[in-house]
Design a protein around this nucleic acid. Structure first.
Lengths: 359, 359
DNA sequence: TGATGGCATGAAAGCGCTTTCATGTCTCCC
DNA sequence: GGGAGACATGAAAGCGCTTTCATGCCATCA
């Protein structure tokens, strides 16, 4: 095994002057000082140029830029961070890095951050407050410049307290405070759209697969379902509601429970796509066809949802955009500006899992 | 908007002695020096204790540990990185952070890294060599201690060159060199298992949806398909092979092409689950039932594959384990040890998308 | 024409750690 | 009993940047 090749500068080892016998200078990484020397200016000037923090005469600027290019100089972020107090990283707490939902959000965050010279540090909360807290502690220890908290179970109090130390953007709830901003899709409106779509197709017995009760998104989606029912003159029937956990397995079990207790319905609105997927499987197992026997609507429009069988009618809220907006708002806060908190509107995407109720 | 709350130490601002009038000392972060002072020892001793780099008398150790706890001291990673040359971060190049395949791998990486005090920095290559190269450059600039390169299109040469600078583990190909190790599942064996399963069910006309030709995994999966055919005495028929791109859409189109050119088959082996999903949809659109008319096998066993309709028979290679092993091997290399490169064996997971050929 | 600023630049002091090197104290053994 | 280590500790020099402060220079104004 070769020794770990650690990047190192060409300056002689500390207090141990380079032995003259050593031939080829080992692979070295340029430092700001080397650039300064090569360009015949002081380190301060180089710093000013790479940071654009002060005017510099164009001839020196040119010389420095050339030296930077020639030496392939890349400022050491550790040194920068130490001197400036900024790490140019932001922490991102997700629930499950491998879920399609978070994946899309992360992509949005990544895209915006990268365009601005920041790098994301990810950590999973696994839907449990302790892990989320641990992730935040880790981020604080790493001195991230800001944190994006994607959904999660951690209490508002704890989050607000953390935000006093590090600028934070949280999604999936409404919350504000010093150093804290939130971003929330209009889940109620989305659920209303979905339910009205079903009602508009003639369905009257519309079942609902709710999400976890401690999740704000889930509660708002239920509220939207109820509101649409009220608006279209359909009486709410608790017997048509079953709760899931936002996973495929939960959707499957919820439908089984519904069917086992004899609930009769011609349409089913699921609080997210993953549960809708599980629900479709449960329905298929019972010999119920989608959409011929039951129309199904999901929520989120995950990347895979256009390839399920049948392709799923769902509510699109662009998790990608959510991630992007969160990153943008966070950078604005870090920069001391007021964050813009607008999100694109939710919209219904009609595909093949819904159809008009047969007379 | 409140000013960005930057974490700062309690030491008086540089050259500008704290005005005595200032009341509450602003939220301060403890430094090693403060701990040393509080415990009545030198900074060196504190450093030795938190790093375990030398023996320290138990009384001092106790005093220091108490001081650390009381001041809630967390060493500043930037300072550490600057002084030691290690950043305690590793870069991870994935292709698409939002794909279920990579998501699972990332989870494995995250789990192992976190257990060892390292943090992952993610960046997407988007299946194109330029972005991958850019990601590597970014990582080099950020002075990561190592890199995990998850699949990708970048040439072996470029990768080997990079690995001379930063220890690197690459998956999805076989490659070794200074600072470079690779991890590769036995794709050929997996494909062989899948195809033999189909043959064992009596199928003779087994179509194959290949992956992109420039992908090693894809090529090995095709090799396994052919080998199984040969082993079971079935003649290879190029008319039963169509190429896809590892995405759902590619699988859908490939099946359409197959059917359009009149190919007749009773079984279909897809080079990955995502294509299998698209294939199932294409089949359904043509009125072909899975598995009644066509048995389908995938590859990867993605989290969602047990909830497709029907649940997919597939080859499990545990991408999670792959991620974990990659992380482990990388840390071993960083530590100057020889990396262990063993991966769990692939296995066939039989679900409901395959059935015996009806006579 | 001399005081007045503004401007570009360099010197140097840190940022908060790690890591030599030097030193003082013990213990051990011939 | 005295010298040799072994051991625990502290002093101090960086790591590679940023940022203040001081300075020399030139154009400007009354």
């Amino acid at each position: 095994m070769s020794p770990p090749p650690r990047l190192r500068t060409a300056t002689p080892a500390r207090r141990k002057p380079a032995r003259a016998s050593r031939r080829a200078p080992r692979p070295a990484v340029a430092t700001l000082e080397m650039v300064a020397r090569a360009a015949g200016v002081s380190p301060s000037t180089v710093s000013r140029i790479i940071n654009g923090t002060a005017a510099v005469s164009s001839e020196r600027r040119l010389a420095v830029e050339r030296a930077i290019a020639r030496l392939d100089f890349r400022p050491n972020p550790a040194a920068r961070g130490l001197a400036s107090g900024r790490s140019m990283t932001v922490g991102v707490v997700t629930q499950a890095i491998d879920s399609p939902y978070y994946g899309e959000g992360l992509r949005g965050i990544e895209a915006h951050l990268q365009a601005n010279g920041y790098a994301p540090l990810f950590m999973s909360g696994h839907w449990n407050a302790r892990d989320e807290e641990r992730a935040l502690a880790q981020f604080a220890a790493r001195r991230v410049d800001g944190v994006i908290f994607f959904a999660g179970r951690l209490g508002d109090k704890a989050l607000a307290a953390f935000a006093r130390l590090v600028p934070t953007v949280v999604t999936g709830r409404r919350l504000a405070g010093p150093g804290l901003a939130s971003l929330k899709a209009d889940d109620e409106e989305g659920a209303r759209l979905a339910t009205r779509h079903l009602a508009g197709l003639g369905h009257r017995r519309i079942a609902f697969l709710a999400g976890p009760g401690d999740n704000v998104d889930a509660r708002e989606r239920e509220a939207g379902y109820r509101r649409a029912l009220a608006e279209t003159g359909i009486a709410f029937d608790a017997g048509l509601v079953a709760a899931g956990d936002f996973h495929e397995s939960g959707g499957l079990q919820a439908v089984n429970r519904l069917l086992d207790r004899g609930a009769r319905f011609t349409a089913l609105f699921c609080a997210n796509d993953q549960m809708a997927q599980g629900a479709c499987l449960a329905l298929a197992r019972r010999g119920l066809r989608v959409p011929a026997d039951v129309s199904v609507v999901g929520f989120d429009d995950l990347p895979g949802s256009s390839y399920t069988i049948p392709p799923l009618t769902t509510v699109r809220q662009s998790v990608f955009a959510l991630g992007e907006c969160a990153a943008r708002a966070l950078l604005e806060m870090i920069g001391g500006r007021a964050p813009r908190l607008a999100l694109p509107a939710v919209e219904l995407v009609v595909r093949e899992s819904t159809q008009r109720l047969r007379a």
